[in-house]
Design a protein around this nucleic acid. Structure first.
Lengths: 194, 194, 194, 194
DNA sequence: GATGAATGAGACTTCATTCAT
DNA sequence: GATGAATGAAGTCTCATTCAT
């Protein structure tokens, strides 16, 4: 059951992870099945059980892949930022990028949704907790850096407050017919930072 | 299709709804199956399809039952309140009762969790939207009344802000090993109202 | 289990028979279910088992109703016929009317199909045999009368031959995308009678 | 979807096809169920969905198997025929063999019945059409060859006429208590060819 | 006489996982 | 190392029929 590590093995394993991540975004947890993942990756059905102990395992790795990718993009955005930041609006957008993922993609609301599905799912699936806690920690560190770069800097309590504001706004926005969770969060954040 | 309405029929149908609601609290959406609901209600398997068009139908009714029950309790608490309310702490607790359900039960965190599972699930299951929107509307009306009774009163934007704060705090608290979402929300709310 | 005979009872029973006949035409044997018949007739589900021993029973009566109705129409057509018949073409059309049902309705091919579904079904369902044999006998008598009225008259062997020709043509025509079984049968018949 | 293709897999799949074909002959379309096929083949229930997309799929393959087997036997008979054919009687029997399947088996009438059940069923089940049309085409080609070998040869219109005669005779014979559809068809054919 | 209520049996299908090769 | 083959368990749902009222 050696969980593979040939270059080729690595490549295939990653293809499965990517496929699973795409399915998670498109259809949520229920869309991730051995069959659907394998088909999407163009790999044999049994490869999913060969490279992963179980389906839950695969889901964890897919969530991690997706989460870290968003984090990395968030860090990049912070780095790319001109040395003299451009005020409140820029800060608000950057924080939204980091909390919800960079905007302007086709599957906007769905990708955002996944972050909250993961959070909520963690409450019932203990095996997700380590990942969710770690990603949460890294996200918070990134946000602290971000605020530090924008003049003031903030303390942890204030950060939690802002995160809560955004997350709460998003969760309540996602139920609309044409949800625009980012806009809802933007409103909250802008006012709180004004 | 004769979806039953004798007193006895009503009783049985309700037993299924209650069983489904209990399962929702204990195990989330995935725990609600024809079999599990019927067994829990002590009724034959086929009764689930006899009283409900489909499993989704049953889930909707169970969510509605649970949601309305919490709302009713919230309204009661507001009514029972002594004519001269007792200040900030009392307001905070009352709002928490109304948003998260009255405290002090055995399945505290789980029952709270269900509210957020419903919210998130609505994003992928359009048939939940009407219910979620309606319950959301009633909850907001109740909260408006509540704030009105406590001197000041607040406008809608402020209310949304407070709701976001609580919901965001809860969603982020639910991932802990021994989650105390109420405490997290309390902290946020107390400070915001101070 | 007194199979009802109030005027009202008769009326309701007949409504069920008609509903079942319509379903037979539209969807074949598989479309006849207690539920579908009752709904179509606008009567309670249990009325189907109240007025009929079983579903098969109801099917038999529906087939009989449909078959006799077609026969009656065939007889009418023969009677209505002007005293001096109009030659071969008229004979051909009349025989087709009698074998396949009068033309020019919306559900042409489907109604014709039912005659052959009944024939074939009889081979597996002995309880259909009495009906099928009787309707077959009456049809043959009618056809004999028809040929008698058109000059010559024919013997039984010749009649069987013509029936076989028509039935065989129809059965082979029904498999086409836009079946015109009547046209196929017409061709055969015309040539055989020429 | 990996619909199997090992030699062993092929063998198992074929066992299911054969089982389904036997059930079709014995009990018609309604007798073909996942359970009944699997049991008859001595294979697990799930094997039916493993090897076939759906039950309809299995039915199609079973019908094809049966139809092609009959065609093959018909071709053999034509080939085996002594170089100097033996006149009308021999021709009649050969044509009957080809249209109804070689005689002298235990399930004579039932196997013949299946041909007509398939024809009729095609009218309500479009997915059977391709198969029914193809088998019909091959059968006609075989019959043309057959008549060609017996002196004269015939044109297509005449062939359709003979087929109609046989099919019509059979369809009308199948409703008898002890049906002898072959005898009925023989009578028609003999006279038509005389 | 009539019917709403009820259910056991069984239908088709999905799926995670095991295993032999 | 990789994978096609295989299947038990369970899923949702339909339906003819029975029965109490």
């Amino acid at each position: 059951m050696t969980t593979a590590s040939t270059p080729k093995g690595e490549r295939r394993k990653h293809a499965l992870v990517e496929a699973a991540a795409a399915l998670l975004i498109e259809g949520g947890f229920d869309a991730v099945r051995h069959r659907s993942v394998a088909e999407r990756a163009g790999l044999p059905l049994a490869s999913t059980t060969y490279y992963f102990e179980s389906l839950d395992d695969l889901i964890v790795e897919a969530l991690e892949f997706h989460g870290r990718q968003e984090l990395a993009r968030g860090r990049e955005l912070l780095t790319e930022l001109a040395t003299s930041p451009r005020g409140l609006e820029a800060l608000v957008e950057l924080v939204l990028d980091q909390l919800l993922g960079p905007k302007a993609r086709d599957n906007d609301a769905q990708a955002i949704l996944l972050r909250y599905e993961r959070l909520i799912a963690t409450a019932r699936r203990p095996y997700l907790r380590p990942l969710t806690l770690e990603l949460g920690g890294e996200l918070r560190a990134l946000l602290m850096d971000t605020f530090a770069k924008f003049a003031a800097g903030i303390d942890e309590a204030r950060l939690e407050q802002l995160i809560a504001l955004v997350d709460g706004a998003v969760v309540n926005a996602l139920i609309e017919v044409n949800p625009d969770p980012r806009a809802a969060a933007r409103g909250m954040l802008r006012e709180a930072l004004a």
